[in-house]
Design a protein around this nucleic acid. Structure first.
Lengths: 242, 242
DNA sequence: CGTGCTTTTGAATAGTATCAAGGCCGGTGG
DNA sequence: CCACCGGCCTTGATACTATTCAAAAGCACG
């Protein structure tokens, strides 16, 4: 919970805040806090008052919505350089919760400062708007396929989504996330058992290999092929700063 | 396909363009076209190049995404004052299509003009960003409940969504939209037969009344009660101009 | 070396989609 | 005016898919 170091020397290359003028960056720094979160800790909780905007310096975050019987649904995954809490921006309270999936470091800027920055840094504002646009495209793609895909295909989709956001780790094609079968189920909108059954099927088909709790994607192209029948266009990676 | 009349005398009270300075409104008018669309006509089609932004003057539009076997999924409904095509903004081509559900009038402003307006009208830009934020909250709520609700509850949800966007018509609680059972199925992510079975059930339970192809909501509160188990927070109406 | 959490498998059940067939209604042309 | 046509609505039977429940094995951590 220590206070911030400087944005200018910040290691995060993609942070939106860098789009503000130097003058404004310094001003923001005065109102910015930088907080460390442990795995499992809430960054904010559905119902909390919206007090500002979060910027992920590094880490892995899941954004979840609580539905029936408080069952979690993972609406979005976020990592370095992403914005958090922007869905709530302009509203009273957060409609969703954000939870650290790994130890993470996140900067926070209060409402008033951010609003002023918007009015004086059009480049920053427009870029953030493009980020929203990108987000909408992504979530809408997930929504369509959630509505139309079988569970099997949704599991394949979730694996690719995890890969696209978090990538592979240093030891090859192993999904670089501390994720449980239950998390995957929460992305797919199904239950743990279905995820496991389908992972087992995928393993028999040489698409993935289960290595303990970790998952190795042995045939990424094969998984993508499974989804071509949906006309699916994977959303291109966002270029944060141009 | 006639050219525009003035934004300043425009009857649409909620249009975002009104947030620009008078000077800029006049400038935009020079680059704006106003087009009428007949029922069923495409405003833009998935794959089309993104050339600008659309503002609905009046009418009813469905925004659809084409998935498996080109089955439509209705991602969003839009009406007077809403923005269209903003999901594609910043991208190359539209990921989705927009189709008029009724005769509609829509203004179009090209990319270059809109981008310039963003940089010179922070009030306009920030308001549009809040609109995006609102959109994200709405779509994410629909996504969560699409993932967790039964078909029955999704049908109830679709009816309420239709009511919230288009309202009732002059003859009481009849849904004010030229919508088919298939459209409802495309909102729910199910098929026509399921929609009809559930509408029949709802009718027996005195929640709705089928009047030909039109649907009368006889117990709106009852429908909403059906969904409370999902912790569902209906997204409050957007206040376009404040 | 338990204890609790995650993963895994099987069997029973419930929920949905698909297929087939018929009815209704508005519009069109004889 | 009436018959026909096409689009939309409706219902039933059937097959399939997914969820739920139960039980056990593996694993990590104190």
């Amino acid at each position: 919970m220590e206070n911030s170091n400087s944005c200018i020397t910040c290691v995060s290359p993609n942070c939106f805040l860098k789009l503000c003028s130097n003058e404004w960056i310094q001003l923001i720094e005065g109102h910015k806090t930088e907080t460390s979160y442990e795995k499992g800790q809430y960054v904010f909780n559905a119902g909390d008052l919206v007090n500002g905007l979060y910027f992920v310096k590094r880490g892995k975050i899941k954004v979840v919505s609580n539905g029936l019987n408080n069952k979690e649904h993972i609406v979005r995954l976020a990592t370095d350089g992403h914005v958090l809490g922007h869905r709530g921006f302009g509203g009273e309270t957060y409609p969703i919760s954000a939870i650290a999936m790994d130890d993470s470091v996140i900067c926070f800027v209060d409402n008033e400062t951010i609003s002023k920055a918007f009015f004086h840094n059009p480049h920053f504002t427009v870029k953030l708007m493009l980020f929203y646009s990108e987000e909408l495209r992504g979530i809408e793609a997930r929504m369509t396929y959630l509505a139309q895909m079988t569970v099997r295909d949704r599991v394949a989709f979730a694996l690719l989504y995890l890969k696209d956001v978090f990538g592979y780790n240093s030891s090859g094609e192993i999904l670089n996330a501390n994720i449980t079968r239950a998390d995957i189920a929460d992305i797919c909108g199904t239950n743990v058992e279905q995820v496991i059954r389908n992972l087992t099927d995928f393993e028999k088909e040489k698409l993935v290999a289960k290595e303990g709790k970790k998952i190795r994607i042995t045939n990424e192209e094969g998984l993508r092929q499974m989804l071509v029948i949906y006309n699916f266009k994977f959303v291109p990676k966002m270029h944060f700063i141009s």
